[in-house]
């Protein structure tokens, strides 16, 4: 990593400028994914080791702000800040719940929504929650609705020189969340779900090449057909066997957990 150039902009506009003009540059926030990849050399930025663009300390990317009926979370706000935010606890409890399942204290102190989005892992713990809330991803140049953000396995709608600056959540939606992992902390999910009834949203991670909206299940839910939604979700997902779980398990658990979350909604 000695050959990776370290760039530390002082302002967002400087960061945007540097990102546009530095070939092979990778944005760096808390480093929980990028530092692992750079050290293990599973990522080798070009040319000549490339560069990292440190966004961690940019004030413009931090904090949780109320903008009318929107809650805006800075792209580089760590999960600890999200969990501790009174606004998040009050309005977005599912986001706080998801953040609490990420890694443990060390990771929560460094991991960010911007990083989770840009990394676009199908197993990203917050991503189903973002889908269920219909968030808007704000970048240096535009707003991207979350349902158009994930375009393929670890691929996003971001342009090569586009930086995520914030995530905007609508207030007033009831979202339920559950992650099934191998252990109680420090686990990547086998299945992760976020569900809302009004509007009907069923968002699932680790069951396809992207974090997924289960549109068939949502259509059934829209019509008040809970049993139909649970049956239909099996056709929405495309799980695989991998190191963490099996397709069969993910299929069964997606249905079981969806049933559990919907039952909980019904019980109020």
């Amino acid at each position: 990593m000695r050959d990776v150039t370290y760039l530390r902009p002082r302002t967002l506009s400087e960061a945007v400028q540097l990102y546009r003009t530095t070939p092979g540059c990778r944005p760096l926030a808390g480093g929980t994914d990028l530092m692992v990849m750079l050290h293990a050399r599973t990522l080798r930025p070009e040319p000549r080791g490339g560069a990292v663009l440190d966004l961690w300390s940019l004030a413009e990317l931090k904090g949780v702000r109320r903008l009318g009926d929107i809650l805006e979370v800075g792209a580089a706000e760590p999960y600890t800040g999200i969990i501790g935010s009174a606004e998040v606890q009050q309005h977005l409890p599912a986001l706080a719940a998801a953040a609490r399942t990420i890694g443990a204290a060390q990771i929560q102190n460094r991991g960010t929504l911007g990083g989770n989005l840009a990394n676009a892992s199908p197993a990203g713990d917050t991503l189903p929650v973002l889908l269920a809330y219909d968030v808007v991803v704000v970048t240096d140049r535009r707003s991207i609705p979350i349902d158009r953000f994930f375009t393929g396995y670890r691929k996003t709608a971001l342009e090569s020189d586009e930086l995520i600056t914030a995530v905007r959540f609508p207030i007033g939606r009831q979202v339920a969340f559950r992650k099934v992992g191998t252990r109680a902390a420090q686990a990547i999910s086998k299945v992760v779900l976020a569900v809302s009834l009004t509007p009907a949203r069923v968002a699932i991670g680790s069951v396809a090449e992207v974090p997924l909206r289960a549109h068939r299940a949502e259509a059934a839910l829209e019509g008040g057909d809970v049993a139909g939604a649970i049956a239909a979700v099996a056709d929405d997902i495309r799980p695989i066997d991998d190191v963490r779980s099996t397709a069969a398990y993910r299929r069964a658990v997606t249905q079981n957990v969806l049933r559990g979350l919907l039952d909980a909604f019904a019980r109020g």
Binding site: A104, T182, R183, A184, A185, Q186, A187, I188, V243, R244
Partner: peptide
């Protein structure tokens, strides 16, 4: 081994 990293070979944490 497919579980050849600490992110894939999991041992119990204090919470487990």
């Amino acid at each position: 081994y497919q579980n050849d990293r600490l992110a894939t070979y999991l041992i119990p944490t204090a919470l487990d």
